[in-house]
Simulated scan of single mutants.
Amino acid sequence: MKRWIGVALLTLATLTNAQTTPAKKELVAKLLQLQQPGIENVARGLVEQVAGRMMQDAGRVLQTQVPPEKREAIGKNIEASVRKYIDESTPLLRERAVKLAPSVIGAALEEKFTEDELKQLIAWNESPVNKKYQQALPEIQSGFLQKLVAEGRPVIEPKVQALEQSIRSALSSGVAASPVSKPASAAKPAAKPASK
């Protein structure tokens, strides 16, 4: 009997924590409002990540397949297209992220945190210490990233070079097999000199 009472109390406690009250919904909404800049940054980051990958791919093609005299003009055209993509896509994805946040992030917060914990999170987000931390974070991360690149380069660079060589080899074997890419002199075997 005591065991059943314990299970019932545990179940009741779980339901109470998972229960969404108007006060809890209000706390979640406030927390989401405080986190909105971060949510918007995630959206902007996704847009810029796609643009960055496209720029890298385009840069490789420019360097390897575009005649040198045309690279600058084509590069500027690509940069303008990428900037337009970022300028048009960022607000769209940012708007979607802000709309989506309550149903995804908000629902998770309601499920995983009690009202008291939400109050603590809000207090932390509004605290001067957190604001100072958020302001210092980009500089701290930048310093860390620079140090990581400097210290990681010696161990990663050989692997990058090996990967580049492997990709070049794979591409050159595909290009060499293509009849279009063969130079005209290689198309016909050289004539043998006449023997006397």
Rank of each mutant, 00 (worst) to 15 (best):
P154E: 07
V42Y: 11
S195E: 09
E69H: 11
V28L: 00
L145C: 04
Y85H: 01
K159T: 08
T14W: 14
A23L: 12
S169L: 12
R53I: 13
K76N: 08
T21P: 01
L10H: 00
G75D: 02
D87H: 04
R168M: 11
V180A: 12
S172C: 06
L32V: 03
I167N: 12
L12H: 01
I105V: 13
S195W: 05
S172T: 12
K192V: 10
S173W: 03
R153L: 14
L46H: 07
W4V: 05
A18M: 04
V160F: 11
P193Y: 02
P154N: 14
I156H: 03
Q36R: 14
V28S: 05
E126K: 10
K112L: 12
A13V: 10
L10F: 10
I74E: 05
R96S: 14
M1L: 03
A43N: 10
R94M: 09
G6R: 13
T90S: 12
L46V: 11
F144T: 11
G174P: 03
E111N: 14
A97D: 00
Q63P: 00
K24W: 02
Q19R: 10
Y85L: 09
W124G: 01
L27W: 01
K99D: 05
P193K: 14
A73E: 15
L145P: 00
V180G: 01
S142L: 15
A23P: 01
Q141D: 07
A176S: 10
L92Y: 11
R3G: 01
A108E: 13
G152E: 03
V175F: 08
P189E: 15
P189S: 14
K147G: 08
V47E: 04
K25S: 10
E115T: 11
L109W: 12
V61T: 12
V155H: 06
T64L: 07
L92E: 08
S89P: 06
T11E: 02
Q65D: 06
G75R: 09
Q161V: 11
R168F: 05
E126D: 13
P128V: 06
V104F: 04
S89A: 15
V175G: 04
V104L: 09
P189Y: 05
Q65I: 03
K182L: 06
Q134C: 07
S181C: 06
K24D: 03
K188L: 14
K76F: 04
A97Q: 11
G75Y: 02
I78G: 01
V98H: 02
S178Q: 13
T21V: 01
Q63L: 05
R3I: 07
I78R: 08
V180F: 15
A107F: 02
Q49E: 10
R153G: 09
S181L: 08
T14N: 00
E26W: 05
R53D: 04
L137W: 09
S81C: 02
K2R: 09
I156Y: 07
V61L: 06
E48I: 05
A73K: 11
A58V: 00
T16N: 01
I86Q: 15
N77W: 08
A162I: 05
A136M: 14
S166I: 08
L118Q: 02
E157F: 11
T14R: 08
A58Q: 03
E95Y: 06
Q165A: 13
K2M: 10
A108R: 15
A176F: 00
A107D: 12
L12F: 13
L32H: 04
I5S: 09
L163T: 03
P183K: 13
A187N: 07
L15A: 04
D57I: 11
K112N: 15
S185P: 00
V50M: 10
